[in-house]
Amino acid sequence: MVELYLNGRRYKVNAEEDTPLLWVIREHIGFTGTKFGCGKGICGACTVLVEENPTRSCITPVGSVKGKRIITIEGIPSDHPVKRAWIELDVPQCGYCQPGQIVEAYALLKKKPKASKEEIVSVMSSHLCRCGTYGRILKAIQRAQKLMEVKA
């Protein structure tokens, strides 16, 4: 039995400690927004926040994040500038990689609201998108930066 603190709620899950966090979030608890892409930490589709840090849940044993604050795509508010910018620019194509991309972008802007284009590209290059939405992702992050400035 593992206890998790996920998107602001506590869950008790009947899973072994070495089970990848990804499967616990998706299949045991049912937040299927977090995706499986490679299982090796390469593609970024499974990215969630653990204590604000973007984390590849496919290679994170659930036992290592007990009691830590975990946020998935479903836990990011709909009115957050990142999600709004993504909608405004119609970023997703198939959409499969997008939750991971959005979580990463959210964490990046939280840490570095004024991240430069080069910084954005460097961080986001750890995420794969087979549909080739890279250009729009970049634009959406820059747009979110603008939206955040207005808010601030």
Binding site: R26, F31, T32, G33, T34, K35, F36, T72, I73, E74, S78, K83, W86, I87, D90, V91, P92, G95, Y96, Q98, P99, I102
Partner: peptide, 18 residues
């Protein structure tokens, strides 16, 4: 606007694996 964008941005779109 794309009809599927919001679902996909919210992580609510259901794929085969979901």
């Amino acid at each position: 606007p794309r009809i599927d964008t919001e679902e996909k941005v919210e992580g609510k779109a259901i794929f085969g694996i979901d």
